[in-house]
């Protein structure tokens, strides 16, 4: 995927979010640190252009909620910032790449310490398969079949697949 493809995918996902929620009333976005933050910002920008409303935008770091804590060194990347109350709102969680689903499980756990959204939806730029938990995305930029030994890097400038260095 090139930068133009990313832009089109963001635009389409923004439309799908509006369609699914019948507008943007009571919709908020949360980008997962750090890869999901740029995507959440871009989706929020697209929503503003399409509908004239910029939904509340937060960021969430899930390091303290992961289930592989203790299996590898795990330091948080950037503090969580959710400067709004999302009780009763529809919360769209945004991440760059969906893989095993463990980050999303941790994120769902973390969110419950902040409040109780009416619904949580998931938007990702790339779904690369290999799920280990019963989690599926609501909005997908691109389904990209991969091998486990590959690495997927999704940025504004495009999506790269690289070999995992062992």
């Amino acid at each position: 995927m090139e930068a133009e493809d990313i832009k089109r995918a963001v635009w389409r996902m923004a439309h799908e979010i509006i369609e699914r929620n019948h507008g943007l009333e009571g919709v908020a976005l949360v980008g997962l640190q750090t890869g999901g933050v740029w995507l959440a910002e871009d989706i929020a920008g697209a929503l503003l252009e399409i509908d004239g409303i910029k939904p509340p935008l937060g960021t969430l770091d899930v390091a303290f909620h992961r289930d592989d804590i203790g299996l590898r060194p795990l330091l948080p990347e950037a503090p969580t910032r959710i400067p709004f109350d999302f009780d009763g709102q529809a919360l769209v969680m945004v991440d760059d790449v969906l893989y095993t689903g463990r980050t999303i499980r941790a994120a769902l756990d973390a969110l419950s310490s902040y409040g109780r959204p009416r619904a949580v939806q998931l938007a990702v730029m790339v779904d690369r398969g290999h799920r280990e938990l019963p989690i599926r995305p609501d909005y997908v930029g691109k389904n990209l079949p991969t091998r486990r030994d590959e690495m997927v890097d999704a940025r504004r400038e495009g999506v790269d697949i690289g070999e995992l260095v062992k």
């Binding site: 303290f64 909620h65 948080p76 503090p79 756990d109 310490s113 902040y114």
Partner: peptide
């Protein structure tokens, strides 16, 4: 990070 955790409505992480 833990300052942020302490400000949550449930100030506890697993």
């Amino acid at each position: 990070h833990f300052t942020e955790v302490s400000q949550r409505s449930i100030p506890k992480v697993p």
